[in-house]
Design a protein around this nucleic acid. Sequence first.
DNA 1: CGGGATGGTG
DNA 2: CGTGCACCATCCCT
Length: 460
Amino acid sequence: LKYQRVELARSETSAAGQLDLDGSADDHYLDAARDALAVERLASPMLDLIEERSMSWLYEELERPLVSVLARMEENGVGVDVSELRRMRDYLVSEVNRLESEIHLLAGREFNVNSTKQLREVLFDDLGLTPQKKTKTGYSTDAASLEKIRDQHEVVALLLDYREVEKLRSTYGQGLLEATDPDERIRATFNQTVARTGRLSSEEPNLHNIPVRTALGREFRKAFIPQQGYEFLVADYNQIELRVIAHLAEDPGLISAFEAGQDIHNATAASIFGVSVDGVSAEQRSQAKMVSYGLAYGMESYGLAQRLGIATKDASEILESYFAAFPAVKSYMDRIVEETKDKGYTETVFGRRRPIPELSSSNFRVRQAAERQAMNAPIQGLAADVFKIALVAIDAALEQMQSRSRLVLQVHDEVILEVHPDEAETVHELTVTNMRGAAELRVPLEVNIATGPTWADAKA
DNA sequence: CGGGATGGTG
DNA sequence: CGTGCACCATCCCT
């Protein structure tokens, strides 16, 4: 147990024995006593460090108040419709069984479909299909690789279906039921000090990755419900990371698109492909979306090509067009990498730091990964700051009005409340106001908001 | 137990 | 040559 200038040696724990009044010494008490001692010893030097690094606002006004907000959310938990969950699990179990049998039939033998090792043998040895990329242990069987050999054998499409259904069955069907308390609520742990960018994370269970992209997966959101007589209110930031990029890069084109309230992906596509905003095709909009998000993470033409299913050369042209249309974004990315190299860490306007020492690595790959982190951390970090400010403010506003409505979930840029009908209008209003007003960026913050009887229904 | 592969979210 | 950030859970396998 060691931190900076303070070290609490193992021997110190013997002093904790003094708390053991009845003599029935127990590891549990020793641990608690050691924790208490550690806090006592660490508080002062750590507060000094916070002050020294000008992080007092971040700590006193944001992170510390957030502790009790998250504690309340954890304690409340979120309601689930257990019979709906069971129905889904049962359906998924039967589908998995059906697909497994069909796969065994087509493969010509029984094997564990969940074992990549066995699956590899079946696909590439028995059936002689064409391997795509490699992993550390052999040929890859991931979805992208299977997609490329879909036409070589009819079992491949079934495998892709199987993977989707088995994922939903195990992680969500079975997993969420096992995580449900007797009062039919799920209580996750929200970690405040795990994600290096300042985001929150959720574990046991992870409520930050409940499916939404496929129709079948999205069904799980129907099982998340408010307490009897209440309604869900879901509010999320519209394009917060792209707005943060516009803010940080001070890019005139991005800023004016957001100020004009344009559909940002349409506007981006129009700029990249040199067409009018009305003349953007669905494919162009979709490609523009991939470019916008990809670049926030330092994606290169190869990666873009993989995701768009086009030639690297074409992807490279699209990227060039993007940076030509939004030149400030390019210079911002270059600038932030250099700055981070000098300082050794990235920093958000609210003072949140992320050290990135690997920027000086002699290993090219490590250094390149570090550069991408340096590009991404200020963006994801500032978005996280803004979101946390809103969360604390919403909670304070609810507290102040002695509300019966309460926060039950948050997912990076989205908050979910269960709202008492009498408070619907007030809570709607305070949620939007506090989210929009969380920070003053060079572009407006917009919030989508909707209500409904389940998480699935509360989508605008 | 822990690493690797895979895949779910923002 | 390798190729997008941040997480967490499940399953296999050693």
